[in-house]
Each structure stands twice: as C-alpha cells, then as structure tokens.
Write a protein that binds this DNA or RNA. Structure first.
Length: 250
DNA sequence: TTGTGTTTTATTGCCTCC
DNA sequence: GGAGGCAATAAAACACAA
C-alpha cells in the first residue's frame, strides 16, 4: 500500500535500494507521501525494507522515547522520507519487539532467582536431615522418651485426677506446690524406667536394638521444667508435649 | 536452487481515552 | 466518534543449510 511505482520521481532515495539491481526505489517525496490520494492511486506494491540509515535514526528516536507524539511522527517522517503512518507502524512493531525482549530478560532473571532459592532450600533440607540423624544417633533414648511421654500423659489423666482430689482433701491450701513436686518426680521416674534407661549415661548399640538397659543407662535427660506439670494447667503441658512430638516426627 | 525458519513491514480488529 | 495503542496475523524479505 505504501510502496511506490516505478518511475515515480524520487527525492529521498533509499540508498540500499538504489544500489540494488533491478529494484525500484521505495520512497518518493515527502509531499507525495503525505497525500492520501497518492497511495489510493498507486497499484499495490510489494513491501520494501527500510534502509540502514532510516532504521538507525528510528532506533535513536525510539531510545529517546518509545511513544510517538504527532509532532515527532511528522518530523521523523519528513526527515526520513517516509509516510507518517509508516513511522507509526515502525514504532508499533518496535514496541512489540521491545516487549518480547523484556519478557525474555525478566524470565531469565526470575529463573536464576528461583534456581538460587531452590538450591538454598535443598541445602536447608540436607542440614535438617543431618541434624535429625544426629539427634537420633547421639540420644536414642530421646525417641523412646517422646513416645513414652505421649503415652504417659494420656494414661496419667485418670490417676492425676484421683491423686489431686486426695491431696486437696488432706491439704486444701498447699496442693499446688506439693502436688506438682510429687507428680513431676513420679512422671520423670516412670518415663525413664518405661523407656528402658536410668536417665543418665548412654545405651550401647545392642541395647538400642533390643531395648536392654545397661548400667550406664541413657545419656539423654529431659529438663526438669518439662516435668513440672502444674496441677491446674497440665492440659497446657500436654499441648506443649504434643508440639514437641510433632516437631520431632515431622 | 530450494526448502525452511526468522525477521521485518503492514493490516485488521478490538479496546481505551479524550 | 475519532485517534492511537496493542495483539494477532499475513506476507514479503532475508538468511542459511543441504
């Protein structure tokens, strides 16, 4: 549509085209290009590529501002010997190419960030596994203890209620301290005996397998605070233990 | 030379803004 | 409602291997 016919006077000659043998000039005068009737009267022509000089100037203009105001479009068209519509189309296509390039760049950047994060995550998982293995190896009694605690807390519900009730009858104003100490020591002793250790020392490998207790016993000892089961809030302690158990097994 | 893939120029249709 | 932008697409020009 925008191409001109052979024999049309050429004020602005596309240099590359002019040097091509057998190829007609693509551009004509600015005045002719601005006349709509000119295009209407021309027979459809195959499209031609812009010259290097034209592209160079268009690129420079695009770098300054990728949007095209009407004045700039007209001025560029005048300087390049192109139709204003052609300049607009070139900018349109150039913006599309820029957007595609930008998307590719963004994709590469995000992919690199993702890979770095994934590697970091894998490292953390490995560290986590290593720490869990250390815990399981160096304190085998800990595993048993966690299981015991869960079972014991469930089993203690009934007996605690009975003991507390009896204590309250004997010493109604001192039950908190006395009962806590009593129950804490009781629970601690029960746990260590039921998981097959004394609460001090280490298990041998065969003891780990068979669960037989040596004289040395277990090298893992839970803090006393863990056994300080308050009479009035042992439900909260149970919840805490549940959290610990969950942490350990997950 | 020819087939094929890529790039560039241009069109069409739809949407938004003034 | 017209101008301009964008996405999708057509089609010519170009590059290049076989």
């Amino acid at each position: 549509m925008w191409a001109c016919n052979a024999g049309v006077p050429m004020a602005v000659l596309a240099m590359d085209d002019a040097t091509r043998v057998g190829k007609r000039p693509f551009f004509t005068t600015h005045e002719e290009l601005l006349e709509e009737e000119y295009y209407d009267e021309q027979a459809p022509e195959k499209k031609r590529r812009l010259t290097a000089e034209q592209v160079q100037l268009l690129e420079r203009s695009f770098e300054e501002e990728n949007k095209l105001e009407p004045e700039r479009k007209t001025e560029l068209a005048r300087r390049l010997g192109m139709a204003p519509r052609q300049v607009a189309v070139w900018f349109q296509n150039r913006r599309a190419r820029w957007k595609t390039k930008q998307l590719e760049t963004d994709y590469d950047r995000l992919k690199a960030a993702y890979n770095a994060l994934a590697a970091d995550h894998q490292g953390l998982l490995a560290d986590n596994d290593s720490l869990r293995a250390q815990v399981a190896t160096s304190s085998p009694c800990f595993v048993s203890t966690v299981i015991c605690l869960t079972e014991k807390l469930q089993g203690k519900e009934t007996s605690l209620s009975a003991t507390i009730a009896a204590q309250e009858v004997d010493q109604p104003n001192e039950h908190t301290t006395g009962t806590e100490k009593l129950l804490a020591q009781q629970l601690k002793d029960d746990l260590h005996s039921s998981c097959g250790c004394t609460g001090h020392g280490a298990l041998s490998s065969e003891e780990e397998d068979g669960g037989v207790v040596s004289d040395e016993g277990c090298n893992f000892d839970l803090p006393d605070a863990m056994f300080a089961v308050g009479v009035t809030n042992h439900g909260a302690e149970e919840a805490q233990l549940a959290n610990w158990t969950s942490w350990f097994w997950n």
